[in-house]
C-alpha cells in the first residue's frame, strides 16, 4: 500500500473541505469566514487537479478549471474584503452576529 493513488488526494481534499466548512460555520470574525472559504476553494482545486492527472491526463480540463477557480477566488476575496470594510465603517464591528439588518 506504499503507492499514492487518486483516493489519497480525494480523502485529503475532503478533509480540507471539512476543516474549511467547520470554520465557515463556527467563526465569529467575517475575515476568518472569508479565509475559511478560501480553504474550501483550495480543497476543490486539489480535487480538480488530481482528477485531471488520473482520469483525463491529456485533456487538461481539470487544470484549466482550477485556473478559473483561482481567478474567481481572487475576485471574491477582493470584493468580500471591500464589503467587510464598508460594513465596518458603518457598524465598527466585524462580528457576523452583529450583521442583522436583514433580520426582523
Amino acid at each position: 500500500m506504499l503507492a499514492i493513488s487518486l483516493t489519497h488526494y480525494v480523502v485529503l481534499s475532503a478533509l480540507l473541505f471539512s476543516i474549511g466548512l467547520f470554520g465557515v460555520l463556527t467563526k465569529r470574525n467575517a475575515v476568518a469566514v472569508l479565509i475559511c472559504i478560501e480553504l474550501m476553494l483550495n480543497a476543490v482545486n486539489i480535487n480538480l487537479v488530481a482528477f485531471s492527472k488520473y482520469v483525463t491526463p491529456t485533456d487538461f480540463i481539470g487544470q484549466i478549471f482550477s485556473i478559473f477557480v483561482i481567478t474567481v477566488a481572487a475576485a471574491e476575496v477582493g470584493v468580500g474584503l471591500a464589503i467587510i470594510i464598508a460594513i465596518y465603517r458603518n457598524r465598527l464591528s466585524v462580528n457576523l452576529d452583529d450583521f442583522d439588518w436583514l433580520k426582523w
Binding site: E38, Q63, S66
Partner: peptide
C-alpha cells in the same frame, strides 16, 4: 500532481496576492 503551472499560479495568486490582501484588510 504534475501541475507545475498551477503550482506557480498558486504561489503567485494565493500565497502572494490573496494573503497580503487579507492582511491589509
Amino acid at each position: 500532481l504534475d501541475a507545475d503551472f498551477i503550482a506557480a499560479v498558486q504561489v503567485l495568486v494565493y500565497a502572494g496576492a490573496v494573503c497580503i490582501m487579507v492582511v491589509f484588510g
